[in-house]
C-alpha cells in the first residue's frame, strides 16, 4: 500500500515559486528522500500534501485520503517543518503536552524518552531557545505520538553533527517499528545514508525518481588536483568526468562512476595536492541530470 500518493500536483503562487505536475508515491515502510535546491518546491509539495495549501490541480493523499476532506487522518502523521515556530511564551513541556493533547493516546512517556535522547531541557521557555534547540522541540513534537507517517522538511538544519547522528538513529528506529518516512533535503549525502528511494525536484518539477541502490553505484565527487607541471586536457577524457576546468597547473572536475577508475588515473599523475569532496546538489543537477533529462 502506498502511504503517500501525489498525482499531477500543480500550485503556483507568487511569481516564480510553485510546483508543476508533481507526481510521486511512497510505499509503506520506506524512507523516501525528496531532494532539491532551496526554493525548488519541496516545501510547497509538503504543505499541499499536509492540507495547508490548496492545490490548483492534481491530488495529494496520505493513507489514501486527502487532508482537506479527512483531517482526522493526521492522527497518524508527524511533521517537522523546515522552520520551527511555536507559541513563544510557553514552556517546552507545556507545548509538547498541548501537542500530545490532539492525539488519542498517552504520550508522556515518549516525550520524556525523546527529550532524553535529544538532550532537550523541558523546563525552558520556547522564546529562550536557540535555533538548534527549537529544532529539537520540533523533532520531539513530530515524533511524540509515534506516527505511522513522518514528514520531515529539512530536518537537520541547525543541529550539530552529534545531534544529527542521534536524529538519524531515531529515524532508523521509527522505520524499524514500521513507520514510513518522507524526508526533504538539499544535501544529497545526508539523504544517501538513510533513504531507500529519492526524488529530485528542481524549479517545481520532478526531474527523476531513483532507488538509492541505483544511485549509490554512481558516487559523485568533486575533485581538485594541483600538479607539478602543466597538463593537457586529453589526459582527463575518462567517462564520467564533467565540468572539467584546467587552469595552468590546477585541474577541477566532477566525477560520477566507479571511484577506482579515477584513482587509477590520478595515480599516473605527478601531484602537488589533491582534494576530493562532495559536489553540491546544484552541481550534480547542472552537469548530469539536466543533460540527461
Amino acid at each position: 500500500m502506498n502511504v503517500i500518493e501525489i498525482h499531477h500536483l500543480t500550485k503556483n503562487y507568487g511569481k516564480s515559486r510553485g510546483i508543476t505536475d508533481v507526481s510521486l508515491s511512497v510505499a509503506e515502510g520506506e524512507i523516501f528522500g525528496f531532494i532539491g535546491p532551496n526554493g525548488s518546491g519541496k516545501s510547497t509539495t509538503i504543505r499541499t500534501l499536509l492540507g495547508l495549501i490548496h492545490p490548483a490541480s492534481g491530488t495529494a493523499a496520505i493513507f489514501g485520503k486527502s487532508c482537506f476532506e479527512h483531517p482526522e487522518i493526521r492522527q497518524q502523521l508527524g511533521y517537522l517543518p523546515s522552520e520551527v515556530f511555536y507559541y513563544e511564551n510557553m514552556r517546552v513541556l507545556d507545548l509538547l503536552n498541548y501537542s500530545a493533547s490532539f492525539y488519542k493516546k498517552d504520550c508522556s512517556k515518549r516525550i520524556r524518552e525523546l527529550a532524553a535522547v535529544m538532550n532537550l531541557d523541558l523546563t525552558k521557555k520556547i522564546s529562550d531557545l536557540s535555533y538548534g534547540n527549537k529544532k529539537k522541540v520540533g523533532i520531539v513534537q513530530g515524533l511524540l505520538h509515534e506516527p505511522k507517517l513522518i514528514i520531515l522538511d529539512e530536518p537537520t538544519g541547525g543541529l550539530d553533527p552529534l545531534m544529527q547522528q542521534k536524529f538519524f538513529e531515531l529515524i532508523r528506529e521509527e522505520k524499524r517499528k514500521g513507520a514510513t518516512v518522507f524526508f526533504s533535503s538539499h544535501i544529497l549525502s545526508e539523504v544517501q545514508k538513510l533513504c531507500d528511494r529519492v526524488a529530485f525536484i528542481k524549479e517545481g518539477r520532478i526531474l527523476r525518481q531513483e532507488k538509492m541502490s541505483d544511485l549509490q553505484e554512481n558516487t559523485y565527487k568533486r575533485i581538485s588536483i594541483e600538479l607539478n607541471q602543466e597538463t593537457r586536457p586529453e589526459i582527463f577524457q575518462l567517462e564520467g568526468i564533467s565540468d572539467l576546468q584546467i587552469k595552468n597547473k590546477m585541474v577541477k572536475f566532477i566525477f560520477k562512476g566507479n571511484i577506482n577508475q579515477v584513482t587509477a588515473m590520478i595515480a599516473e599523475l605527478d601531484l602537488r595536492n589533491l582534494t576530493i569532496g562532495e559536489p553540491d546538489l546544484e552541481e550534480i543537477f547542472l552537469h548530469y541530470y539536466e543533460k540527461e533529462g
Binding site: P71, P81, F85
Partner: peptide, 17 residues
C-alpha cells in the same frame, strides 16, 4: 502572524473545528 499554522493545522483537527 506567529507562524504556528504548521503546528496547529497539521494536527488531526479540521479548520472548522
Amino acid at each position: 502572524r506567529d507562524k504556528t499554522t504548521e503546528f496547529l493545522l497539521v494536527k488531526p483537527v479540521s479548520r472548522t473545528m
